[in-house]
Write a protein that binds this DNA or RNA. Structure first.
Lengths: 255, 255
DNA sequence: CTACTCAATTCACCATGATGATTATGAGCA
DNA sequence: TGCTCATAATCATCATGGTGAATTGAGTAG
């Protein structure tokens, strides 16, 4: 089903007007034919000005060496990625498009593999974003929001009392996610939430080593978070930012 | 060509096992049939556990009321988005998948509209990431890298001398992009580059207002950037971080 | 010169039939 | 009990033919 049944493989450099020197050809080939064709067309589009005509569907389809249906799949992928636009009529066909910066970011993030993204890198970025969220929570947080934060703190306290680090980690993230939810900055929230999830998917397998007793560690982390919520509730900006900095400079700071 | 020629529109609630109460149905319908079907299947997948079986292609295709080819397009989109996996054989068909955090981030960023994303929000996030890039440049930057930075500085100086703010803005971003390129943190780089582009696409239309003379402003910005490059070259971490903080707290800080 | 009509081009979507590959399951055998 | 093999289910891709919609440009009328 994932067979490579293409005797006319488009690896033939003569079929590719952009030449075999493109770094794109050095990437591992995608798993199916429509994705392969999509990469080829994307390479063509990259070499044209935005709005530049690439050709008719039929011309490009034969260039890619796939069937009509498969090429239609390819087109759907490219349209969704903002790489091409398609018009009917005389002079119609496929035209190179420039994805908006946001579409480009989305596509480049999609191209990253979360198994290869170093969790330490993700933690660094998340840490850098924490002060922004704290500032937003100070300005946009309502008493109802802070009451919600205290529910997550209570869950963290229960995990500390029952010496359950996994529950502590979950409650800790619930707290951070809820702080993030206060921010009206959609971009910031999207980034932060996904970073949390990425870090969570790694951290349960790398809970803090025996450098310090685990129970002592999570109690300290709990107390730090409790002080942070207190500072937010009191709208104490200096304390909140100092605490979030302390949160992010502790030796083991995944939680 | 973008006709709605579906007399059996799947807006019929009885054909949707998740009911018409889903918020997804309140979204504007995507532009083509394969995307519409993709939304339907995504809604189904969202209501299942990861790995839960949705049905055979044929069952789901008739549920969506599209042709075989169109449904194949739908599948390609959903697979690319990590929403479903597909298996042949007895008990095969479509299965709900949970996209990895990175795929989720990519998809959520794609769903953001850069026209609606407040550039101030993007600037805030970019500013938060600047110190990370400076730290990476201090540790990973080579003399060749710093020579490249000076080329961009020279371009900025030329723009200052010829009183050309647009050229200054371009050269300034060239500098920042080159600093970002030093970082080995792929995630950080992707985020930063796209944020730069997003900000750039807005800033040329909002160059600093007449609060201060423009020539004086860009000269000050140039000097700040020159001092930053000097600090990087000298591997002076304190100065570099102080300068980037000053960079990010100036009254007009898009450049 | 402007507006409308028409023809040609091109696309979106539909339908049908086919081959070959992959997967899961169950039967048979050691 | 474990392994092998055959079968059925299911998918990926291919090919072909069709209708209707959208777009562009040329020609014509006012």
């Amino acid at each position: 089903m994932v067979s490579q049944r293409n005797p006319k493989a488009p690896a033939d450099g003569s079929a590719d007007p952009t030449g075999p020197s493109r770094a794109d050809w050095e990437k591992p080939a995608p798993g199916n034919r429509s994705e392969q064709a999509a990469e080829q067309i994307a390479a063509l589009a990259a070499g044209r000005e935005p709005g530049g005509r690439l050709g008719t569907k039929e011309e490009l389809r034969t260039l890619c060496g796939v069937s009509v249906g498969t090429f239609n799949e390819t087109l759907r992928l490219l349209q969704a990625r903002g790489v091409v636009t398609v018009r009917p009529g005389p002079g119609g066909g496929l035209f190179a498009a420039t994805p908006s910066p946001m579409v480009r970011l989305g596509n480049s993030v999609l191209a990253l593999d979360s198994q290869q993204t170093d969790v330490a890198d993700a933690v660094r970025v998340r840490d850098a974003l924490d002060p922004l969220l704290v500032q937003d929570a100070l300005w946009h947080g309502s008493p109802a929001d802070f009451a919600e934060l205290r529910k997550h703190l209570a869950a963290m306290a229960r995990a500390v009392d029952s010496d359950d680090p996994v529950a502590f980690v979950h409650a800790n993230w619930g707290l951070h996610a809820r702080i993030a939810a206060i921010s009206p900055n959609t971009l910031l929230r999207s980034l932060y939430e996904s970073l949390l999830e990425l870090i969570e998917s790694h951290t349960l397998s790398v809970l803090p080593s025996g450098e310090r007793p685990l129970a002592e560690y999570i109690r300290e982390r709990y107390e730090l978070h409790a002080a942070l919520v207190d500072a937010l509730d009191a709208r104490d900006k200096d304390a909140a930012l100092r605490l979030v900095a302390a949160h992010n400079t502790a030796a083991e700071r995944n939680v």
